[in-house]
Simulated scan of single mutants.
Amino acid sequence: MATEHVVTWICHPDDFLPEYVEKITARMEERWAEPCAKHGFSFRFISANELVPTCGDRPRLWHNGVDLLETRQAYIVDDVSGDPQATHFLRGVYRAIDASDSVLLNRSLVGSESLERDKLAILARASVLGIRTPKTVALPFGRYARRGLDVVREEIGEGPYILKAREMGTGVGVLKLDGFAQLRAAVDIVSQTGQNYIVQEYLPNRGDLRVAMVEGKFVASMLRTPAEGSYLANVAQGATATANPDVTAVISDVEQIVADLQADYLCVDWLLTENGPVLGEWGTAMAEFSTLPEPARSQLADAFFAWVDRLLSEGGAVTAADEAR
């Protein structure tokens, strides 16, 4: 099978206003252009609503009459959405690519695919490694959501709290709630969304530290500091970013996580509290280089494309995730 040095990002833009999607897409394409050219790659976005996965003699992924899986390429599938039906479809696309000869960059670790995106699964895995995590309660679904409130009160207390979807990113739908009455009202609302939510203790912090690891080696870091009066450290939500802060306080824990997951590519996020770092979450290829400030952005881009090139190369290195399948 012929190989093309193409990275395709498959997404579901219908979750956001068109002008927001255009802004973020333009920014990413601008930041991907130079490193792609430097490493001999091309980059493109494809909306999931333009795709049709099939399986006969082999997995196929049709896009405007062309089977994208006819050649060996690299893919990132942004497989979370506020629309449950869209989420299921995105995961169908994810699994078709994963079963093909192409490279699914999301699958950079060993274990359930939930470890790539599900905050509850991530924190549960980290906790058994002895890594400090925020107190977290997963709310039951639908009309049963209120049954989780007594558990929240018992395990977390009277607040403040953070309420967020288990599988969304970029700070979307994250609520800070001052007390139990606010939480109860918010739970009544989110229980009708069709998504699953978690409640966490709110931990005052001076920012969010991201540590990027590629093929077992530290590559770059970023400190995201919330805007004045904000509790969100996402750059897309107004936070400021600083390149390559010191990672001494967390690097041994990061290396333990990477070794446990046998992760080829992983970005691990930490809340920097007054009592020390606390794990926020981690991400695979969707936690890519474009949000980092320079020079961390170029450092991570160089390592990222070298890794992808090795995966695509004929007879190239077999990843830890491949060996475990």
Rank of each mutant, 00 (worst) to 15 (best):
D322N: 03
S81P: 14
S191N: 00
A243P: 07
N205Y: 00
E4F: 01
C11L: 13
I251A: 05
L203E: 04
L68V: 05
L129D: 01
M286G: 13
C36T: 06
L271M: 15
D322F: 00
L123E: 06
A121V: 07
L129Q: 15
M222D: 08
T225G: 02
D246T: 09
R206K: 12
C55D: 10
A321H: 07
G315K: 06
A48G: 09
V254S: 13
L139E: 03
R147Q: 09
Y75C: 04
S127P: 00
L261F: 11
P84I: 04
G142T: 06
F141G: 07
A287Y: 09
V211I: 12
L279I: 00
G276Q: 08
S127F: 02
V172Q: 12
A48L: 07
D101N: 10
T87I: 00
P59E: 06
Y265M: 06
E215M: 08
L149W: 00
I131C: 07
V214I: 15
G238T: 11
A124I: 08
T248A: 14
A249I: 07
A227Y: 02
L209Y: 11
H5P: 00
D83F: 01
S102Y: 09
D253K: 03
A48Q: 05
T8Y: 08
I24E: 15
I122L: 15
M213F: 03
G65Y: 14
L115F: 02
A181G: 03
D253A: 07
E158M: 10
V268M: 08
F180C: 12
V268I: 13
G280K: 13
W9A: 13
P204H: 09
T136P: 01
G173K: 14
I76N: 07
P140V: 03
N64R: 10
R132E: 11
T170G: 05
D79Y: 15
P35C: 04
P245Q: 04
D178Y: 05
L109N: 03
S313G: 09
G283K: 04
L115D: 11
W9N: 15
R166T: 06
S81Q: 09
L129W: 06
A185M: 13
M222L: 09
A99N: 06
V128S: 13
P293N: 05
V199C: 04
N106Y: 06
D309R: 10
A227Q: 05
E22Y: 00
N64S: 09
E314R: 12
T87H: 09
A243Q: 11
D78Q: 14
S127L: 08
D208P: 01
D269H: 09
G179V: 08
R297L: 10
P35G: 08
I76W: 15
E154V: 01
I189P: 00
W270A: 00
L149D: 06
